[in-house]
Design a protein around this nucleic acid. Structure first.
Lengths: 233, 233
DNA sequence: AACCTGAGTGAACAACTGTTCACAGTATGA
DNA sequence: TCATACTGTGAACAGTTGTTCACTCAGGTT
């Protein structure tokens, strides 16, 4: 934003030799995917305090250190870039899922372990989580839909995990899905709180952890009292 | 967007008599608050498929049928307008709260009644609910904070309501607040689902109602099994 | 060697933005 | 009755935007 003064201070020096963007003999494809990454990273960075709805192509290219027209070599519209970000963010989320699963097997306190893993994960992937949380309500419809779909998918996966737990392994599927949805909702809410706390009062992080554990425990105890739906109604 | 051709087709007809905006002798104040309303309404309307972050002053004045400069007679920045919308949206929400309360006293099935009232309310105040749901993650920080604050307040109020219920009236306050938070989370989630359903497949509304009831019931049964936190930990 | 492909460039376009300005016209208070 | 206060106006400002264009020039191919 500050160094745009290299506009060839003179007058008509526009026919300058034009610096080659790749001085080392990289294969063509990696060179292309490099600016693609720069665009994605620049965008994600801007999205820290901007909504996708308001993300300009020029802004993104500027953040990526690339000419505006270059954008179109990689994406048609800003929506497409958004969809790729959704993909990447949920790849991150699945990472979390795996970490939590392997950790859970090793610990006796599944809840404590899960929450700890979640919090650590959110802390080290703040941008992705913020993006998902915010753009789940995006006016950019395709992105919104993609996020909703992924969340639903995620909840389904979680429900099959739940099916293996002693408390719930006799439940019918719809009940499992419901519980999974509630848990996912709790996760999103936790991410939201955590992101705020992290950038306003990081020392209060343990508070969020404790509170989340409490809620998750509450949801679990609910499972004890819950009478799985047998017939209709 | 299509009728901007009234740009005085001639050349220098700019010194036209200028039509008086209020032909009837209205008091000055109501005239002012009328355009203020037009601005707020126009903005809320645009916010149906735009984020506050991306809401332009010119757009708003255009939607309100008013010159761009007029905006500044009422608000300094777009944020201020946003804050007023937050106020109004939560006024709507409190309306809901009252409807639900008076209804609950008359019915034996509190849960069914509450959900019904909620759904009806969301249906007839879609814009407000969409605004709250979306802008709770707004990059426009003051608006985001205001929404969070109001939601927290709302949860607190709800928790005092819960304190009067037979199942929970022995609970310590923190537990009540937790349950209230979970319920508010469920409400927001319901509003989200409902808004989508309403504009994509309205016939599936009863489905959302049933599902929400189920979840709310689950949370309530949890209350049965929950062992209120006695000491520390 | 010569050729082609295609990623990245800078310039140009019209369209739009936020904000300020002097001004007009009226309801209000003297 | 006149003077004041104040809401709304249109014009103007410098910026910024999305998108297209002809172009260069390196990598890959023949």
């Amino acid at each position: 934003m500050s160094e745009q003064l290299c506009q060839t201070g003179g007058s008509t020096l526009a026919l300058v030799p034009r610096p080659p963007r790749s001085r080392h003999d990289e294969p063509r494809s990696v060179d292309k995917s490099r600016t693609r990454r720069a665009l994605l990273d620049g965008a994600l960075d801007l999205l820290r305090d901007r909504s996708l709805d308001n993300l300009g192509i020029r802004e993104v290219t500027r953040a990526a250190g690339v000419a505006p027209a270059a954008f179109y070599r990689h994406f048609q519209r800003i929506d497409d870039l958004g969809l790729v970000l959704v993909e990447e963010a949920f790849a991150t989320l699945r990472e979390l899922m795996n970490e939590a699963r392997t950790g859970a097997a090793a610990t006796d306190d599944i809840i404590h372990n899960s929450v700890t893993v979640l919090v650590a994960h959110v802390r080290s992937h703040q941008d992705h989580y913020r993006f998902i949380a915010r753009e789940q309500f995006s006016p950019v419809v395709p992105v919104k839909l993609a996020i909703r779909r992924e969340i639903k998918l995620f909840a389904t996966e979680l429900s099959t995990d739940l099916a293996r737990l002693p408390v719930t392994n006799t439940w019918p599927t719809p009940d499992l899905v419901m519980l999974a949805d509630l848990i996912v909702g709790l996760m999103v809410d936790t991410a939201k709180r955590l992101l705020d706390v992290l950038e306003e009062a990081p020392e209060r992080e343990p508070e969020v952890v404790r509170e989340t554990e409490r809620r998750l425990r509450y949801l679990s105890f609910g499972a004890t009292a819950w009478h799985p739906t047998p017939g209709p109604h």
